[in-house]
Design a protein around this nucleic acid. Sequence first.
DNA 1: CGTCAAGAGGTGTCTATACAAGTTACCGTT
DNA 2: AACGGTAACTTGTATAGACACCTCTTGACG
Lengths: 275, 275
Amino acid sequence: MFWETTRSSALRSSAPRCHSRLVKTSEDLPLHQRLGAEFQRRIESGEWPEGRPVPSESQLCAEFGTSRGPVRQALALLRNEGSLVGGRGKPPVARRTAPSQPFGTFLSFTQWARTIGREPGQSTVEVARRRASPEAAARLGLAEGAPVVELVRLRLLDDVPAMLERSTFIHEVGRILFDFDPDTGSVYQELLRREVDLHRARHTIDAVAAEPQDAELLRVSVGDPLLRVRRLTTSSQGVPLEDADDRYLPAMATFTIENTIEGRTVIGRYRTEED
Amino acid sequence: MFWETTRSSALRSSAPRCHSRLVKTSEDLPLHQRLGAEFQRRIESGEWPEGRPVPSESQLCAEFGTSRGPVRQALALLRNEGSLVGGRGKPPVARRTAPSQPFGTFLSFTQWARTIGREPGQSTVEVARRRASPEAAARLGLAEGAPVVELVRLRLLDDVPAMLERSTFIHEVGRILFDFDPDTGSVYQELLRREVDLHRARHTIDAVAAEPQDAELLRVSVGDPLLRVRRLTTSSQGVPLEDADDRYLPAMATFTIENTIEGRTVIGRYRTEED
DNA sequence: CGTCAAGAGGTGTCTATACAAGTTACCGTT
DNA sequence: AACGGTAACTTGTATAGACACCTCTTGACG
């Protein structure tokens, strides 16, 4: 393990770090991050059982041969993630928690499907360059009639219709789609590969009745309830890039929000369990 | 302001804190928390303009007469909330961000209604002590047939039906409701007042078709889409306390999830805007 | 006029120390 | 046996100093 490299206290600060630009291995991560990763591993592996107090800070300092600073920084990391609770006087207690789904998993249907162990699929209904509707223009911050690219896809989970996606991209982003077959894979990954600055997404969730096109493609009746997620994706500078309207079959996907009184929030999108 | 109390460097650690048990004023908060609050105030008030670098750590140390530790701890707090971005070499930059809705606002219909400037109301359909159904027992971790308290309330926003709430409490918590008129105010606040350890809530969101009782009370047609939020509230020890099924009129409320590539997540519940 | 090098100043990281405040266990007294 | 106080240990908080690495400016040199 990484800390077993012999490090005498005298060498620690004077050790040459000059080569750190050449090789960027995990050995070069700051100490507190390595400690944090190790602690997390111990919690996940059950080496530090859930509900039991973890070793005291001074024990950890002794074990890894560091001062309290890095150890406390590492513990603070876990505490932030909710993996560690308690304090002041008594040693904190480990708790395994469901990690919040990362940005990509939450944004990309393809990535999401894979994380829940399903095979994603899609059939493109249309890709079109047209002028922005007043509503889309307003949400994207464009002038009415500005060129946009609209993409309508039926998304499948294990070849069963699960969601109907209607995306409107600003032209600068959307034109990438004309060089790309949206049936083959993840639009999201392709945009990232082309270095589109997807940075923030705002999801607004409500319920709507299936309209004729929804009903036909999702194979339900007109008026059946659908779970709608409207998504506005913006760049790190706050420029809107995509405005989407995703309609899920409620039997196929649910969204979860978990929050605690301390302010920790975990979000997820899951396949609806049959119950 | 708090730091203008004259504190000579020599006095700082030897200053008597013995009275801190008697009076628990904001003056007694740890230094880094006071600093964090002050920094946040400066960002919100525009004293530290958005997008502009904030003063350097050494300047802040000089201003408040502290060492770097508390200053860095305070900045880390803001960084965690996303109010501060950047670093390493150049001073970090302030950014105003929408705060995530606190736990109480997200859990309590009454608190939520007030934060959006509406008047909450409710009419209780029934409060009953009965035996747990198999589904509720499973979710609450009880034996089938264990006693529970069921509460069904129609929730109003400005006297208009907005949501139908069906809650199942474990008996230990639910019996409090028999001493309380659920028409008068917030059950949630009452439970907190009685020191019930409401700590975590897991919300699962999907869409359902209105059933006959839903339709009658919410004044819609059978089969109309409703936004359903199933909520499992647990104590800090993980003991399930409440299992609820809330059905919103989609025209009255939406949920939002905002997340960024860095992992910051902000959740909210909002009144549906008429558009 | 462009380019590169040096330097100044910034944050990130780590060490060492000290004390305050909460928790727990133990032990003596009642 | 029940109670209460103390002592040891724990985490929380704060200080001080050191160095690595990054960024930006400045100035000398070609």
